[in-house]
Every structure is written in C-alpha cells, then in structure tokens.
C-alpha cells in the first residue's frame, strides 16, 4: 500500500521502531510514503530531474543507514527533510564545482524516469537556476512542500525568525528573476 503526503508522527515512529527491530518492509513503507516529497525537494534544489532522482536515492540510502541513530527527538519527517535539504544543497554545490551547467531547454525535454507528465515552466526554472541552493531549498519547502515556517525552521536547523527572513529574501529574489524572464 502506498501512502501519499504527510504521515502522522505516531505512524512514522512505529514504522521506524519496526525497521530498527529488523522489519525491512517498514522502511519500504516510509520510502513509498515520502519518496515524492523528497524527490520534489531535491528537484527544487537541483532543478535537473535526473540529478534529483539520483539525489533522492542517495538521501534514502543515507536514511536507511542512519535510521537506527534517529533519536526520535523530532518528527521523522523533520529529520528526513533536514537530511534531504543538506544533501540536495551539497549535491548542488558539487555540481557547481564540477562546472556542469544545465541546459534548461534540454532539462525540459528530458523527464526523469520517475517523472510522469511533468511540464516544467521554463521561466520558473530559469529564475530558480539563478537562485542560490539555500534559496531554492526554502522556496521549495514553502511552496512545493507547503511546510509551515516552523517546520521549515526545524528542517533547516534554524530558528523561526531566520526562516521567515530567509523566505522573504528568497521569494523577493525569485520574483525579480522571474519577472525578468520574457513571457512565453
């Protein structure tokens, strides 16, 4: 059975406990439940669908390895998003370091294997590409994942005011870049 969207804290905690106790099917349930959100977060930060799909697998591999160390002090989803944000930003920096520039028009033509029916808006993509990875992460968490500011703060390991300020600044930068792009 595939779950979509946010799992409740209790359900996730039970699944984590089951996985730690040796039930690998519990991880599969967590994976199915959160794959979409993690993938979308990675895609928001990395923009390229294939890189996002790769990053998503790496994120879940990290989670798989580190789940026994998860202390249940926060919600599983918060912990997962924190790993996802960090990993996606890290991947984005590596990509920039490798100077692998993304051809946006190609990206629009190359759907990832997991990306059925997605039609990226080139203006949004161009504007997102101009943002720093941290800005892309916070915009993705707010507009795509629809997390609250407190959840974003928890996921990015910052306080609420910092999350608010970063979101406002990122949004303003996005708006400027977006409006610079000619309408198609």
């Amino acid at each position: 059975m595939v779950y979509e969207g946010t799992g409740s804290f209790d359900e996730d905690t039970i699944l984590v406990e089951r996985f730690v106790a040796g039930d690998s099917s519990a991880f599969e349930t967590l994976y199915a439940r959160y794959y979409t959100r993690v993938y979308n977060l990675a895609r928001g930060v990395l923009i390229d669908p294939e890189e996002a799909a790769d990053a998503t697998q790496e994120i879940f591999a990290l989670v798989y390895r580190n789940l026994p160390k998860f202390h249940r002090q926060s919600k599983f989803s918060t912990w997962l998003f924190r790993i996802s944000v960090n990993r996606a930003i890290q991947e984005s920096r590596k990509r920039r370091f490798r100077n692998k520039t993304l051809e946006l028009d190609q990206a629009a033509e190359q759907p990832a294997p997991s990306q059925g029916g997605d039609e990226p808006d080139p203006r949004v993509q161009l504007a997102m590409e101009k943002l720093a990875p941290q800005d892309r992460a916070i915009i993705t968490l707010f507009y795509w994942q629809e997390l609250s500011l407190q959840e974003i703060a928890d996921s990015m390991d910052i306080n609420l005011n910092a999350a608010k300020t970063r979101l406002y600044r990122a949004r303003e930068r996005f708006r400027q870049y977006f409006e610079q792009e000619p309408e198609i």
Binding site: V2, E4, Y31, A32, Y35, T36, R37, Y39, N40, G44, P113, S114, Q115, G116, G117, D118, P120, D121, V124, Q125, M128, T140, Y143, W144, Q145
Partner: peptide, 10 residues
C-alpha cells in the same frame, strides 16, 4: 512547478 510525482512512478 511543484506538482507531485505520481506514486506509480516511484
């Protein structure tokens, strides 16, 4: 832009 990936494609 943030439309979700259909679950069948996971």
């Amino acid at each position: 832009q943030g439309r979700t990936v259909p679950a069948r494609d996971i």
